[in-house]
Design a protein around this nucleic acid. Structure first.
Length: 513
RNA sequence: GAGCCGCUAGCUCAGUUGGCAGAGCAACGCCCUUUUAAGGCGUGGGUCCCGGGUCCGAAUCCCGGGCGGCUCACCA
């Protein structure tokens, strides 16, 4: 139970103590008593400030031939305790895994050995000893000295079944990490992927920059923002939904190649593919177009796949996915046509498209009233209905309708289409890129069209950013830009079913209150 | 936002037709100096998510609420 009562209430403490004693489980109470006893003996584990850890578990196992009989110091958490009388076997878990520790009364002396036997699973200990192999052939550390480095006042989850309850796993991720080694592996891979992305771009002359999370306009994407407030400025602010407009200002300023990898925030639904805060990389390259972005995308993701998993081929939820370049390229119109949908290349104008939408029963896919929909809206809806779910192997869908791409340059010779692509894997969008619109007059027109959409009730239409338009008036070179959803890439490379399995602390409702 | 499902010991889970709250691991005591889900003997541990209702009697049935999971909707 939370206790939110105001401080300074002198009458309550005694009741609090009683209440707390009652709230403690038998096991918690016993561990606190053990701690108190150690403290009374001048052996407070929480007073220890340092332990010299010379080796990790994995290294001892990998280099046993060289390390046999050598002195080592290892540190970690007690994960199991097999007491066989005057000797015990302890499984010690550190960052890399586990190594068995052998302790016996002869080596430690009766008094110290008796004290070690009072240590609990979950306690953090440091071991000084030497490497050996047991009769059963397990590489172990024979302890000459055992130091308690921190006491666990709460028992660990059950050693065989571990921690399974998804609610507890997400809320108390530290327990999940301790108990489930594949969870630790997933987050190590996440780090490897992020490091690989940075390495790939840094080597190609990209400058990593940081742009505002807080601003008065949340633009650059179609999404509802989180709202917050500055006390100092007495001003309503939004958390960013994209970094696009600031990064393009950097291109205007002459940085030529920039990227930012960080959190975006979208105030929308939460499910296995969406967390309100998520990690996105956006990158921009002057004098490049969307074809360059396609090559960059497929090579970057393949590079990250190799760095994280050792291969471009991964198994995702039972389906083999090949990330090696080149990825299939398919226009949106062809994707609809070849997946059982109509041929939009023969559809002229909004009215004809609306008739087609009616005959196809495209109701659910449309985001607004049919009478407000343009040919581009309907093509996009048909794509989502017919094609999207079939795009299992990495595929670039190219050439998006102008109406749904307000920051994108039109295709030369076809003003209804833009030089934009999205990359799909397993039916899910993982990247979005385009030849950036750099004509400030057309950009202003497109924003004004978005404002009309907003008036029609689309609260996700892009907000007008006048300073961004001003920056384009200064002159932005022709530029290719791309956004990649990092969490989704991590999901594919770690075979994660839910986005919550690749975010250490996913957004959860408080349990009480 | 809607539907379905879940919530019982620290953890993983049973709990029959509504009739004294259960197991394994963990804990506590004793035995055991190369075990490894160690083993043997014994002991303790519960706000059955919360609040109402029905009933002689509710973990179980009914109503309301909380949190979570899944599916759908939403989500460039």
């Amino acid at each position: 139970m939370t206790n939110d009562k105001a401080s300074g209430d002198e009458a309550i403490p005694e009741q609090d103590e009683a209440a707390q004693a009652r709230a403690l489980s038998e096991q918690q109470r016993i561990r606190r008593e053990k701690l108190a006893k150690l403290q009374a003996e001048g052996r407070d584990p929480f007073a220890v400030v340092k332990f010299d850890q010379t080796h990790h578990s994995a290294q001892i196992k990998a280099e046993f031939e060289r390390l046999e009989n050598a002195p080592v110091s290892v540190a970690g958490r007690i994960m199991s305790f097999r007491d066989i009388g005057k000797a015990s076997f302890v499984d010690l878990q550190d960052r890399d895994g586990r190594v068995q520790i052998y302790v016996n009364a002869d080596e430690l002396g009766a008094e110290d050995y008796a004290r070690v036997k009072t240590y609990d699973m979950g306690d953090l200990v440091g071991i000084e000893g030497f490497v050996f192999k047991t009769r059963r052939g397990e590489i172990s550390v024979h302890a000459k000295k055992v130091s308690l480095l921190a006491k666990a006042l709460e028992p660990l989850p059950e050693k065989f079944h571990g921690l399974k309850d998804p609610e507890l796993r997400y809320r108390r991720r530290y327990l999940d990490l301790v108990m489930n080694s594949q969870v630790m592996d997933t987050f190590k891979k996440r780090t490897a992927i992020i490091r690989a992305v940075r390495e790939y771009l840094d080597e190609r002359g990209y400058l990593e920059v940081e742009t505002p999370v807080l601003s008065t306009i949340a633009s650059g994407a179609a999404a509802r923002p989180f709202v917050t407030k500055s006390n100092a400025l007495n001003l309503q602010l939004f958390l960013r939904i994209a970094t696009e407009l600031y990064l393009k200002r950097c291109i205007v300023g002459g940085m030529e190649r920039v990227y930012e990898m960080g959190k975006d925030f979208r105030n929308e639904g939460i499910d296995i593919r969406h967390n309100p805060e998520f990690t996105m990389i956006e990158l921009y390259q002057a004098f490049a177009d969307y074809n360059d972005m396609m090559e960059l995308c497929e090579n970057l993701v393949a590079f990250a796949a190799v760095k994280a998993t050792g291969s471009t081929k991964v198994n995702y939820q039972g389906t083999e996915i090949e990330f090696a370049a080149p990825w299939r390229r398919l226009t949106m119109i062809d994707a609809v046509r070849t997946n059982g949908g109509p041929d939009f290349s023969t559809v002229r104008g909004d009215e004809e498209a609306r008739e087609l939408a009616k005959s196809l029963g495209l109701g659910e896919e449309l985001k607004k009233k049919l009478s407000d929909c343009s040919r581009g809206d309907i093509l996009n809806a048909a794509f989502e209905k017919f094609a999207e779910k079939n795009l299992v192997q990495p595929t670039f869908i190219i050439d998006y309708p102008t109406e749904i791409s307000p920051l994108t340059k039109q295709k030369p010779g076809d003003p209804t289409m833009t030089e934009r692509f999205e990359a799909f894997v397993y039916g899910r969008e993982v990247a979005n890129a385009y030849s950036e619109l750099n004509d400030p007059i057309i950009q202003l027109d497109r924003f004004q069209q978005q404002l009309r959409e907003r008036e029609l009730g689309d609260d996700e239409a892009y907000m007008l950013d006048e300073d961004f338009v001003s920056s384009l008036e200064v002159g932005m070179p022709p530029t290719g830009g791309m956004g990649i959803g990092i969490d989704r890439i991590v999901m594919f490379l770690t075979d994660a079913y839910s986005i919550r399995d690749v975010i250490l602390f996913p957004t959860m409702k408080p349990q009480e209150g």
